[in-house]
Design a protein around this nucleic acid. Structure first.
Length: 396
DNA sequence: TCTGGGGTCCTAGGACCC
DNA sequence: TCTGGGGTCCTAGGACCC
């Protein structure tokens, strides 16, 4: 893997994205604390953050921190349009863009030097263009690796630009607290703190085997490499998404299984609709649950063939709900979600495999599966049908 | 810091196959 | 009847990200 010896990777991150869109579209909100969310905070403007408002906090709590806050209902359509506009700016600047989420992306600008200039100049131009063409503030980190670029933008926020030159990398990296590292969350941070480790520099003094024992193979190796400033990842245009899902919090009041089932139908309808709209189908249906004590559980079922059919997905999801009903009875449910993974291309087909009926009809159905999806799908269909003939149907 | 909605990746055991 | 090494797929849980 070729890694440039120069700082040529940009990490561009919109500041308080949803709130900034609201401030852009309603000038009365400029300079004032803005909270986006209906009953939990999805985003807060920097004026609100300064008073202690945080994402995922309840709006009631946020109001106590910041009585003057203006609470705005989310407008997802406006945000996704703004995101598209910003990505257009990115793609006009460099052909090598890797989107991370609705509001941040990596750009490799190595190739645009002769056309546009050196990376710091491209970064400044990017910030100006986003401001002029979309009307939003954006922070950019520039470094030799993705990881350092991402950390740099985090440090430079809001509305900033920070370049980490190759010779200053360790001086920049080692004093940082471990929490700043991409991939270190509350659990990992606490495990490190238990060892008395506060900074990245201290992590760099640990052996790889120590970190692997502490955090697992992948996470340990990753952290070891990052702390020693090794990050060979390159900027790659984003792959297609691997799952599509929806979920709904149910509140703390007891919820009957019938109500959960009704919510589930709404969620499946939304998911299946989005899948058909995106031209995707999937095989693995996952039921996601959260309980009174905030513990979680998932139940999943893999269909023999890909589908985007509301009926098929709902049947599977309801079977999984029945499977999980003892758990729900014991722990009380506060969230239900469903997602479909194992996503393939758009081909969708739901033969009703008549395992318990006449063999001619079964053969014909399997022939069709083979024709459309190949013999591997036939194997899966037979295995599944034989082991669990009732699986796709709700046990009555 | 008592918690929304949308995702990604990793681990580990078991079934099954050659 | 006992046995190895290597691989894929499925399920469930968990950490993490924005």
């Amino acid at each position: 893997v070729f890694v440039s010896s120069e700082a040529t990777i940009l990490h561009a991150d919109l500041d308080a994205f949803f709130a900034a869109v609201e401030q852009r579209d309603d000038p009365r909100l400029l300079g004032r604390p803005v909270i986006v969310g209906s009953w939990v905070v999805l985003a807060a403007s920097y004026e609100a953050k300064a008073r202690g408002v945080r994402t995922a906090m309840s709006v009631g709590r946020a109001r106590r921190f910041c009585p003057g806050a203006i609470v705005v209902e989310p407008r997802m359509v406006a945000y996704s349009q703004a995101s598209k506009d910003v990505y257009r700016v990115f793609e006009d600047l460099s052909p090598r863009v890797e989107g991370l989420s609705i509001d941040e992306a990596f750009l490799d600008v190595r190739g645009v030097r002769r056309l546009t200039g050196p990376p710091p100049k491209v970064a400044a131009l990017l910030r100006r263009e986003v401001r002029e063409r979309v009307g939003l503030p954006i922070t950019v980190g520039v470094a030799r690796t993705k990881f350092l670029a991402k950390v740099a933008s985090g440090v430079a926020k809001p509305d900033g630009l920070l370049v980490v030159p190759p010779e200053r990398e360790l001086a920049f990296l080692h004093p940082l607290e471990v929490e700043r590292l991409w991939g270190v969350g509350p659990v990992t941070a606490r495990r490190l703190h238990d060892l008395g480790i506060i900074t990245v520099g201290e992590v760099a003094e640990l052996g790889e085997d120590v970190l692997v024992r502490l955090l697992g193979r992948a996470a340990g190796r990753q952290l070891y490499a990052l702390a020693r400033n090794r990050d060979p990842r390159t900027v790659r245009p984003r792959r297609r998404r691997a799952s599509i899902g929806a979920q709904r919090a149910l509140g703390r009041a007891p919820t009957s299984l019938e109500e959960v089932d009704a919510s589930l139908a709404g969620l499946v309808d939304r998911v299946a609709r989005r899948m058909r709209l995106a031209g995707r189908t999937g095989r693995t249906v996952v039921l996601r649950l959260r309980f009174d004590d905030f513990s979680r559980a998932t139940r999943s079922h893999t269909l023999p063939y890909p589908t985007a059919s509301t009926r098929t997905i709902l049947d599977a999801a309801r079977s999984l709900l029945v499977l999980a009903s003892p758990l729900i009875a014991r722990r009380g449910i506060t969230l239900v979600g469903v997602s479909v993974g194992n996503l393939g291309d758009g081909r969708s087909f739901q033969p009703a495999l008549p395992f318990d009926r006449d063999t001619d009809a079964l053969d014909a159905a399997l022939d069709e599966v083979r024709l459309r999806f190949g013999s591997a799908a036939v194997t899966r269909a037979v295995l599944l049908g034989r082991d669990r003939p009732a699986m796709p149907l709700l046990p009555d």
